[in-house]
Simulated assay, not measured.
Amino acid sequence: MRGMGLALSVGENDHFSEDLAALSGALAAVGVEWREPARSAGPSASAGFPYGYLHHLRRAYVLHLYDRPVPPAGGTAREQLDRDAELVRDETTMLSSHLLCHSDCAGFYVPVDFAEPLFLDEQAVAGGGMVGSAQRLLAELVACAPAIGIAVAADGTVGPEQDAIPADDPYEVEKFTWYGLYRACRASIATGHALVFC
């Protein structure tokens, strides 16, 4: 059984109402209009995984971005993982990736398409003030999907049959994380609700 660390939530955010109101105000201050809608009948999403899983997916994304082979994290030597982590840190400093430039344990993605991650008032907005676009996060997920063995259709969708990940799949960790974020992004974009890291 997976120990839980990071939880994702879309459309079930009533207990974050004050935080979401503060987020809306901080976004408006930089010209981004968004407000958490009332609970809708649309799709909701929730997922959870250990914090380390997110780092493994970030590693896969960066290796793919640099056109390098993406060996599964579970079968890679510690020395190589450390070198890959340095590459991830270097790419994160470019401040352009919505997957990379976000807190590991708190914060928000909103369903508004803006080019680069936003860095808002860290006292007012959870997650150190870093806010991502659900649309851009989804695009980054789709871009790196083939590198971890996920087939994405031309319209950006995946078949439900792919979501059943065999326990012996070498990319089980990366895929489990990918699908959780993918479903959350799709639900956020469909309903207008924020994707909440908590």
Rank of each mutant, 00 (worst) to 15 (best):
L120I: 04
G74P: 08
V196S: 07
D163M: 15
A7V: 13
L65F: 11
R68I: 07
L141M: 08
G74L: 10
A126G: 07
L137P: 01
A151T: 12
D67A: 15
P117V: 07
Y109E: 00
S46F: 07
Y66N: 15
L20V: 05
F114I: 00
G129C: 03
A115I: 00
I150G: 06
V142M: 11
A164Q: 14
S24V: 04
H64S: 15
P111G: 04
P72C: 11
G156L: 06
V10L: 05
T76D: 10
L138P: 00
M94L: 15
V112W: 00
V142Y: 03
L65G: 02
G75K: 00
S24N: 05
G129L: 01
V70G: 11
Y109H: 09
E33D: 12
A187E: 06
A106L: 08
P170Q: 05
H64R: 09
A184I: 06
F49D: 02
G180I: 04
P160N: 09
E86D: 12
L57H: 07
H15Y: 10
D155I: 06
R78V: 13
H56F: 10
T177M: 10
M94H: 14
G3C: 12
R59S: 14
A73I: 00
P43K: 14
E172H: 11
G156D: 10
S46D: 09
S40C: 11
E18P: 02
C144A: 10
G52T: 13
A184K: 01
T92P: 01
A139G: 06
E161R: 15
T157E: 13
P160M: 07
S24E: 12
T177W: 00
Q162N: 09
F108W: 12
P160Q: 08
E161W: 09
C105V: 10
G159R: 15
R136S: 00
I189T: 02
P160L: 08
G48N: 13
S97E: 01
P111F: 05
V110A: 04
M1S: 14
G74H: 01
R35Y: 01
V112R: 03
V158N: 05
L100F: 03
L63C: 05
H102L: 10
A85V: 02
L138S: 08
